[in-house]
């Protein structure tokens, strides 16, 4: 009632002052958030610029042949990235080969088959696994997994496949204990929690009525999963796999511990190799010479490009999943 006592003109002035202040605050806030967003783009562009600039001497010296040359000789300063690039792709691919079926299997068990009281403990255990720092996996890989593989797993496998044409070269000795195979195994253990946690979450977005309808028609658990749950959640599952793949591609410490850090490509999975991130982590501090450091930076650029593609793909998949979920609910 106080307002009514004031003249209409005074009320207007008061309101407009308040309004202006609010508007100004809003504007500042908008600009602030815009700056934050802009910062990301600036950092992104800065990283690309720094990588390209740092790699320029190597790009000039080796050209595109860098991508398919295997030599890595710091003495003569001749560098080619094929061994680390191939090592990165091979270990990540093998890791996915193990992690995808196991990770999805865990998610299926948790959402469809697992007795209710067990769901939370197992789910929490998986989330904890995803949070373990990679160096722990590396130490465990070197001190527990590698000796076990060297003494009890690799020798019998090498002996068993000795006479068989392809397998004998794929699993050739000597048993180092560490190498491409061990690195891929560690990577798969590290990425399983990612895949199963995300897959479980998207499995839970499937409307129960769909599953109940399928069960009502007499479908088995397998049929429900294969024909109802998986088609419904395809985008999300692929997104989870892409995130895991992104982690596997860029993983550094755990891989460095167990891959053997050798710039060679071998037919044998038991032989030591290297990955892009492992090579950079190992050699960056002491890379002296005109082309050594640029060659390592160029490797980083290649990894940046590969990971960027994978993550962009994952974003796209997740976006599609959201759209689909929005459309159906």
């Amino acid at each position: 009632m106080v307002d009514a006592a004031l003249s209409p003109h005074a009320t207007l002035a008061l309101n407009s002052a308040r309004l202006r202040r609010a508007l100004r605050a809003d504007q500042i806030f908008q600009r602030l958030t815009f700056c934050c967003a802009l910062l990301v783009l600036v950092i992104f562009a800065g990283i690309i610029w720094a990588l390209v600039d740092g790699a320029l001497p190597a790009i000039r010296a080796f050209g595109f042949a860098f991508l398919w040359t295997e030599v890595w000789n710091p003495v003569t300063e001749r560098f080619g990235g094929l061994a680390p690039i191939a090592g990165t792709l091979i270990t990540s691919f093998l890791a996915m080969l193990v992690a995808i079926p196991v990770g999805i299997g865990i998610a299926i068990f948790l959402t469809e088959i697992c007795p209710r009281p067990l769901r939370r403990p197992i789910g929490i255990a998986i989330e904890l696994l995803a949070g373990i720092p990679s160096i722990i996996y590396g130490i465990w890989g070197l001190f527990v997994l590698a000796p076990m593989l060297q003494q009890s797993v690799m020798p019998p496998v090498i002996d068993a496949f000795a006479g068989i044409p392809v397998l004998s070269s794929l699993f050739a000795g000597p048993p180092y204990g560490i190498g491409i195979f061990t690195a891929a195994l560690i990577l798969s253990i590290m990425t399983i929690p990612f895949i199963s946690a995300i897959t479980r979450d998207v499995f839970e977005t499937v409307p129960p009525v769909l599953k109940e309808a399928a069960y009502g028609l007499g479908a088995t658990t397998w049929e429900v999963l294969w024909n109802v749950v998986l088609p419904y959640t395809r985008g999300g599952v692929v997104g989870g796999i892409m995130l895991a793949l992104g982690r596997a591609l860029g993983e550094t410490m755990a891989v460095t511990f167990v891959i053997g850090n050798a710039h060679r490509i071998s037919a044998s999975l038991f032989a030591p190799g290297t990955t892009i991130s492992a090579a950079i982590a190992n050699e960056f501090t002491e890379a002296i010479g005109e082309l050594y450091l640029p060659a390592l930076v160029e490797l980083g650029l290649v990894l940046f490009f590969v990971t960027f593609c994978v993550l962009a793909l994952a974003q796209y998949m997740l976006y599609r999943l959201e759209q689909r979920a929005g459309g159906r609910s």
Partner: peptide
């Protein structure tokens, strides 16, 4: 074949940091 520097192209074996 190999020469000498603070890092070389090792003909075989495994590397550790």
């Amino acid at each position: 074949k190999v020469g000498f520097a603070t890092a070389v192209e090792w003909p075989n074996g495994i590397g550790a940091k």
